[in-house]
Nucleic acid binder design. Structure first.
Lengths: 171, 171
DNA sequence: ACATTCTGATCTCGAATTGAAAGCAGTTGC
DNA sequence: GCAACTGCTTTCAATTCGAGATCAGAATGT
């Protein structure tokens, strides 16, 4: 980790951490897709290539955005976990999704999650962050039972996928 | 403007627009620094070089993030303006600043603005966005008189600068 | 009138980054 | 035994980045 920064501005430093075309997508897939393994992350919507993924994961670990440990069930598997720093990006992800949905040519299927996050507001974000802390940091569950935020988002996504698939079939 | 996107995901599309090390800094300087001209933007904290600045400005204009027009007072001057799309990034800027301030080695002088934005919350952001609409989009002023948000942030910055300069002198 | 400064870029060229595709040394499951 | 899976690493061409020099026209100062 080098310490030569362009400036001490918070926005600049944030960009030095994830101001590129891939880092936030990896984090997105971990947060919203529940992905923890290299091979899972390799199957991103955008088709990241393995060398880039390996490089970004290494950098993100060095910067404290992720941690990496061995998977007990498989000697060659590595498990990547979010840190508090990365979980704290959930509201920013929500804002980014809302902004993109408003101003950019998003697809319906891939923006339903952003819509639900926007509608859910800070309450939903907090609940999601708590769930991520349980999942990635071993925090003790405090929230009530029922479907998790990720499950809810995923279900909505699959429902839209099923509907649009049927519409395409009929067309 | 090409239309071949990696995916229709809102977060991905957002990153395709400003997912690099410079675009958001240019927008930051326009929003918080009130900069409108090439030469002003060239004097950034981070020392952007002129070819990069020219390239990013061109791209941002093409994407509808900025508009460019002639300055009536000088035939060679160009004035860059924010669009609604870019003004809508203010809350994201605030979140980014807050996140950076919490997790990264920011400098006191350059993070005082982020602190005030964080403390001000959505109310302050809305007021700021209204002021930007007046300044850049020609909206009719609706807010009460008194110092603008940018002036308030700038004054706080200069106060910290004066204090730390004195401290350095004494040390 | 004349020099200086200011304007928004553009040009050059070496260095760094990007990324597709193939390969690899193991591990696991059947 | 063997095919599939594991997290990468290597190769190499193409692209992008970026510092510095430069530019032509316009305003400004004297």
């Amino acid at each position: 980790m080098t310490d030569d920064h362009r400036s001490g501005c918070p926005i600049n430093l944030s960009l030095e951490v994830f101001g590129d075309k891939w880092s936030l997508l990896i984090i997105r897939d971990m947060i919203f897709g529940g992905k923890r393994h290299f091979r899972e992350l390799l199957r991103s919507q955008e088709g990241i290539s393995s060398n880039i993924l390996a490089d970004r994961l290494k950098t993100l670990v060095e910067m404290g955005m992720l941690t990496k440990r061995d998977d007990p069930s498989h000697k060659q598997k590595a498990i990547y976990s979010l840190t508090e720093m990365t979980i704290a990006l959930v509201p920013i992800m929500a804002h980014l999704g809302a902004w993109g949905r408003r101003y950019l040519p998003v697809s319906e299927e891939l923006s339903i999650r952003a819509q639900l996050m926007e509608e859910g507001g800070p309450e939903l974000w907090d609940r999601f962050m708590d769930e991520l802390r349980v999942e990635h940091l071993g925090a003790t569950p405090s929230a009530p039972d029922g479907p998790t935020v990720r499950q809810t988002l995923q279900a909505a996504y699959e429902q839209v996928m099923a509907r649009t698939a049927k519409e395409r079939e009929l067309a």
